[in-house]
């Protein structure tokens, strides 16, 4: 979650608790019982997260499996814990600078600007885009869809209320991205909470969409999916990129995370590189 939860790995810090084979079994188990397929996810990350859940609740693998069968609330908790939800506003300021300078001028030529933020977590990335669009007077004809598999983060995204302490760091990011004015123009502070302005929430919709199993649901001028693909293996990454390709209008933009690229796939030839360092692409055919 956005609130950095610094839980320590006490018991597991110095000893191995689950093997990769057991992780695979667990993934198979979850798929059979709940229909969620994590088999294309990074096993190294899953192992870390499962270890963390077992520690947190003091569970053996056996306990974990039986809870997953018998306790739906626990299953939801499990989904939240095994996916990484950490996010920031204006994370990687250079990225937002590139979007403003290289993408927005082009986006302005579209009559309607539909943005899909896939894997939006608690909403910080989506609201960063909303601010960029608002600053260029494009928000009025924009609509932003935020999707994630995790319903709890989506509820927080809809609220758009963040810990005021985080805003200091977000504001630094904001300034570093080269934006004029101040981030505080876009939220109101109340006690220790910062609430995103209602005007930025008007043209937004947050809903559940699973990149592994759900398909195209609209046509977009821009898709931003950052720091999600790193948790997927190469095959799943390719599958998701083709979903994005099919969801983009001609000359629509695809934004990936700073460490995520299109690689040398068949599809990469159908994109033009707009910013190599920031992994921004445009669909050209």
């Amino acid at each position: 979650m956005a609130e950095l939860r610094n839980r320590n790995f006490l018991s597991s810090a110095t000893a191995d608790t689950v093997t990769f084979e057991q992780i695979d079994e667990l993934v198979e188990w979850v798929k059979r019982i709940h229909g969620f397929d994590f088999s294309g996810y990074s096993r190294a990350s899953l192992k870390r997260r499962v270890t963390r859940i077992m520690d947190l609740h003091n569970l053996t693998l056996f306990d974990l499996k039986s809870l997953l069968v018998n306790d739906y609330a626990f299953f939801e908790e499990f989904i939240i814990e095994i996916t990484v939800n950490v996010t920031e506003m204006f994370r990687d300021p250079g990225f937002y600078r590139a979007v403003r300078e290289k993408v927005l001028p082009y986006l302005a030529s579209f009559q309607r600007i539909k943005v899909w933020n896939a894997g939006c977590s608690t909403g910080q990335e989506l609201y960063s885009f909303a601010i960029l669009l608002a600053k260029e007077n494009l928000y009025k004809r924009s609509f932003l869809y935020g999707t994630d598999i995790n319903t709890r983060v989506l509820d927080l995204a809809k609220k758009g209320i963040y810990d005021l302490k985080l805003m200091k760091h977000y504001s630094e990011n904001y300034l570093e991205s080269g934006a004029s004015g101040s981030l505080s123009d876009f939220y109101t502070a109340q006690y220790d909470a910062a609430s995103i302005n209602h005007s930025l929430k008007k043209n937004t919709l947050f809903s559940v969409h699973n990149l592994v199993s759900d398909g195209v649901f609209n046509e977009f001028q821009l898709i931003s999916c950052r720091n999600v693909l790193i948790y997927f293996n190469v095959e799943l990454q390719q599958k998701v990129i083709s979903l994005f390709y099919n969801s983009l209008c001609p000359f629509g933009f695809l934004c990936l995370g700073s460490k995520e690229s299109l690689r040398d796939s068949e599809l990469s030839r159908r994109f033009k590189v707009i910013d190599k360092a920031e992994n921004i692409y445009q669909k050209i055919e």
Binding site: L4, R5, N6, R7, N8, F9, A13, F20, S42, R43, A44, S45, R48, R49, V84, V86, N227, I230, Y231, N233, K259
Partner: peptide, 27 residues
């Protein structure tokens, strides 16, 4: 980013919470 190694021998970068304020974390 945290740096993880997959059982197949390739790296995964990870943006999860800093550990003891560190990302990357040596641990």
């Amino acid at each position: 980013y945290h740096l993880l190694l997959e059982p197949e021998g390739f790296f995964t970068l990870d943006t999860s919470e800093p550990v003891m304020y560190c990302r990357p974390s040596i641990d």
